[in-house]
Design a protein around this nucleic acid. Structure first.
Lengths: 168, 168
DNA sequence: TATTGTTATACTCTATAACTATA
DNA sequence: TATAGTTATAGAGTATAACAATA
């Protein structure tokens, strides 16, 4: 296979805007990985952590976590749906989603209304303030995604997306 | 691109040995993801979580977490190295690695010895018991990886490995 | 009985800071 | 001063269990 030497260079922060900020003094000796080389989970995890770190750093000013962002997006695109539906879509456990929504509610970015027809359900909506905040947030997440495309390489990223989408 | 319908079927547990155990009664309605469709981090995370869940389930009898497994492997393949070297290799923060090693030490699977030449360092080794346990553990992780190959598809897995290895 | 949402507990993981002992 | 390792704390994410209200 073709191995892009530049990928590891960028990972190490040896180029501009690298993900890790390894100082040149720090001895970055890498040991043998053994059977880890045969585990796809290991490599999936490494890249996922790097991508999430960039997301969190790029969105730091908003104090919005990846999971919170995904919930706001799904509410925006599916207004009025229940917590159960959101949780099933994003694989977020209902207990965790309840607390996550409380945080977003405290920031006045989302709103719960009594669901028509089922007294147990809440219908979820973005507030006007939440929609405005999300628009601003999207300019940051677009910047994040552009950084990831530069980091991974446009072609490699497209290939990965095609391979990964099936499992979303 | 070719979209393997069977991938989502397996994800939903509709085939034998599926990853999720969605009962057929449970309404698995998926909502629109919006801009999430353009974020590679989202899809990386989904698959990584699925793979780690299978790892944890397959190794449940050993109560060994993915991070602990990776540390034991790197110690096995690099006996006598310091905690700093292990941590740098696996991107595990030193404070976290210290506690993780205490757990493995309490199970008598690893051993710290005073490093020759630097009084600050510990040299890390597997114990005989640890090496034996790791051999047994590897039969389980091989089973896990075989399950992942069946889940992802051998060809797709190979393509992913090639694309992801660059960032490890 | 089952589902929706809530609260609570426990454990893992990540990120820091402060500390010691050595270099 | 800097590094290796330790301890502690705080927050996020995950996994359960128990509960009230409703279906």
């Amino acid at each position: 296979m073709k191995r892009r030497k530049s990928a590891n260079d960028r990972l190490s922060g040896r180029e501009t805007g690298g993900i890790r900020e390894a100082s040149s003094s720090e001895s970055t000796e890498k040991l043998a990985l053994g059977e880890l080389n045969g585990h796809i989970g290991y490599f999936l995890r490494r890249l996922q952590v790097a991508v999430f770190k960039d997301f969190i750093r790029t969105l730091a000013s908003t104090r919005l976590r990846p999971a919170q962002y995904s919930v706001m997006l799904v509410i925006e695109h599916n207004p009025g749906r229940s917590q159960a539906a959101i949780g099933q879509t994003l694989n977020i456990e209902r207990a965790r989603l309840a607390r996550l929504l409380h945080v977003l509610e405290r920031r006045k970015w989302i709103q719960r209304r009594a669901a028509t027809g089922d007294g147990r359900s809440h219908s979820l909506f973005l507030t006007g303030e939440g929609a405005k905040a999300l628009a601003r947030i999207k300019t940051l997440t677009q910047r994040h995604e552009a950084q990831m495309t530069a980091f991974i390489g446009a072609k490699r990223r497209a290939l990965l997306m095609d391979l990964l989408r099936d499992f979303g």
